[in-house]
Design a protein around this nucleic acid. Structure first.
Lengths: 214, 214
DNA sequence: GATATTCTGTTGCTTTTGCAACATTTTTGT
DNA sequence: ACAAAAATGTTGCAAAAGCAACAGAATATC
């Protein structure tokens, strides 16, 4: 595993990485599918980096509804200071969808220039800036989808984002239909009904999780 | 006007501020209410800071619907790299609600350490990090509101956020009802109808834009 | 390879939301 | 102070979305 491949350590040599991680007391941990990586209730301000596997940031409302706030792929970054604030009647957690390996770094240590005054710490902060910028971008995209008024508009908006991201009118949904409905914050059967209509009207082609915009 | 009051220049002396702003070729401009401060279509990567007045980040869909993506108060920061990506069938702009004064800084110059190697540039970047972190937080809150399923849930969710922010069960809506409906991405009359019901059921007290949770 | 479990897709019914048109109130501009 | 414009609030009707219950398909488990 090369740390320097991670976006957070871009332009930092592997040696410097290891030294810094040591200096920041970063910890690595393995998780099994379904396990909870991180709960936003914990008081410690920690940044997590997904090294391998798939995970999701999930909110459980106390009335039972569940929302997928974000999908995390390897190199994905999460944590208290990066986003998502649990409210009084909900809790937020990062949950593994497959087996995962995660790196944890204390936020204070990450942003404070250490007494060893690593010159590369500046680079680290600049990288963090970029990551936050990216995160803001993806949150904005999510807001764009959610602020569509109808299920069809939500679907199309998200499809266009995926298509733009892959630069192709054919793409794969990164969700089960159940999770997809939770992601769009709509009723699953209403969503599938709408997908059916869109298929009939010739707007899209769809087979399982592969979708083509026509 | 003291620049060092601005969050972006926190812990930077007024002198250093002026020197850096000069070095980064920052420009200051005045706008009238209703004017467009900034459109996200422009190719230049620019960061704007609202020095005075009220403005909003607005998306106009080509089908006519309008969504308020964010409200900006003095010291608010906006720009391409900080958030919001216009899609093929929408455009995003920052629009003044009152007369405004805005400071523009080139993003490249802001994040690149200048050749003069101002030591305070490091501080500037750290401040930017904090601002982005805050922005991410507010976007997350917005996602939380929008991912509620019904109008009532959206209203309550947003009210709780306002109440938590002001630490009081009485607070002022920062919107007209029209803008508020656009912010929640719901129909205005349906929203007002729901507010009426909630009032009747004794959940809230409401008079004009002042709301009390009961 | 049989069984259990999860996921996918369908449908009728109910509820909620959106829409349009209007009356009333408040704000703005001169 | 007055007129014009904008914002607020109401309502009936239409459309969309949610819900529940179910059947079939795919996947996992042993």
């Amino acid at each position: 595993m090369n740390y320097s491949e991670n976006l957070l350590f871009q332009c930092v040599s592997e040696n410097d990485c290891r030294r810094m991680l040591d200096c920041m007391k970063a910890r690595k941990r393995d998780f099994f599918a379904g396990e909870e990586i991180y709960s936003f209730d914990t008081p410690r301000k920690i940044v997590g980096i997904l090294l391998s596997g798939q995970a999701a940031v999930v909110r459980y409302e106390y009335n039972g509804t569940r929302s997928i706030l974000e999908n995390l792929s390897p190199k994905g970054i999460f944590g208290e200071h990066l986003s998502f604030v649990p409210s009084d009647d909900s809790c937020i957690a990062v949950v593994c969808q497959t087996d995962c390996q995660v790196l944890f770094i204390d936020y204070q240590r990450l942003t404070a220039t250490c007494q060893n005054a690593c010159s590369c710490h500046t680079q680290l902060i600049r990288n963090l800036l970029q990551l936050l910028s990216d995160k803001t971008r993806s949150l904005s995209e999510r807001v764009e989808v959610l602020s569509q008024r109808s299920i069809r508009e939500k679907l199309m908006c998200y499809f266009m984002q995926l298509a733009a991201g892959k630069n192709s009118s054919t793409f794969e949904l990164p969700f089960t239909m159940i999770d997809f409905a939770d992601f769009l914050s709509v009723n699953r059967s209403a969503m599938i009904r709408e997908l059916g209509k869109m298929k009939q009207e010739g707007l899209i082609r769809i087979s399982r999780r592969t979708i083509t915009l026509l």
